[in-house]
Design a protein around this nucleic acid. Sequence first.
DNA 1: GCATCGTGTTACTTACCGGTAACACACATC
DNA 2: GATGTGTGTTACCGGTAAGTAACACGATGC
Lengths: 220, 220
Amino acid sequence: MSAIGSLERSGSSGAVAAQVAPKRRVRDRIFETARQLFYRHGLRAVGVEAIACEAGTNKVSFYRSFPSKDELIAEYLRDQCKVYWQWWDGCVAPYAGDPRRQLEALFDGFVSLTCKDSSRGCSLGNAVIELPEGSHPGREVIEQHKSEMRERLRSLARQIGARDADELGDTLLLLMEGGYLTRLTFSSDGPIRSAAKAVRRLIDSHLAPEPTAHPRKKRA
Amino acid sequence: MSAIGSLERSGSSGAVAAQVAPKRRVRDRIFETARQLFYRHGLRAVGVEAIACEAGTNKVSFYRSFPSKDELIAEYLRDQCKVYWQWWDGCVAPYAGDPRRQLEALFDGFVSLTCKDSSRGCSLGNAVIELPEGSHPGREVIEQHKSEMRERLRSLARQIGARDADELGDTLLLLMEGGYLTRLTFSSDGPIRSAAKAVRRLIDSHLAPEPTAHPRKKRA
DNA sequence: GCATCGTGTTACTTACCGGTAACACACATC
DNA sequence: GATGTGTGTTACCGGTAAGTAACACGATGC
């Protein structure tokens, strides 16, 4: 591994990015490169030398910008959170006041985003598998993020007036996480395609008049 | 799956396992140790030296039993499949002929197993995140396994008489994978607790007389 | 008695990894 | 022109990884 698709890749010396914008700093190039490589190949599979090299610089400059690889990872994860909530808010904003539409829009967006060829699931979710149990500075970022996802989904379920809002919210979280994970195994025609319909079913079920009562139709 | 809860664990040197059975071979000890370490810490985080040492032997004996670490990983994954289907069949067997009860039992078993302290989710699902894209011999094991999970769930959904069996099966797969993945972030009171109820809801929804029609109750 | 098999031991190679030291150079600003 | 800042370069450290060579030893079986 670490072959790595080579993005623009310059020869060796810097003096490449100067084109138009205010001369992208090394730090920014490194971070941007790290984001791509981490997402595509995983945290442990990508070394700092590979990142620096791919960013058109070297390891020394890397360590002038970041105290350690672990800290870069933590910062990467924090950045991913930010991006994630921007996406979330963008899905939800057009339907303010209609939590059901918000949930549906969220999952529609989720499906179409996660089915894209470039998707490799959820960076935060993937990271938790690669990070050693306790210590790593990235762990708490992940845990905090997933807790917030859970809380937001539960909150939307509450706003909808679901009979058991926490259960509905948690079920939706399961659906979402399952979608992310299966994206790595199945190609774009994976089970995630069913997520959008499932959400609607689940909401209906939680809104229906009686509590999932007797329609137990004993299979013919 | 794979109990993993640290079995006997000996001091350091071999000469331990001889107790009663026909003198457990080095290969078996290595494999057993690898199973535990891989599951607990991940594939990349565990080196062959660590495995050999923990098994009370050394790297040389390791390479006399296994051609390479990658091959060991592939074999580990194959073994995990076997264990998994044994567990699955054990859940389902008591309710032969009643696919709905089978699905419910499966998910009840899934929840209680995955909530155990020793659980670190699905070894196959975790592995897919750690394995480089194409080449690794373990990849096809994982893909084949996940495809079979999907197929079995769809089949059960079909037997139930679900209106859209493929959709139901896929949704259940999402739920399951989501449960495995969230297990790594949340402790035992995570969203997976909702999986058992969600299954029943989804089945009801797929069995209900009309297609999720009008009960659209616009949140009062 | 001899060969083979399974295993242990020590030592090694090659490669990579995260991280650092020391030095050089170009440019921008005062 | 001096100074400082940002950057590149070369070389290195200590650690660990996967994988191998050569040798030793005890048990088993012919």
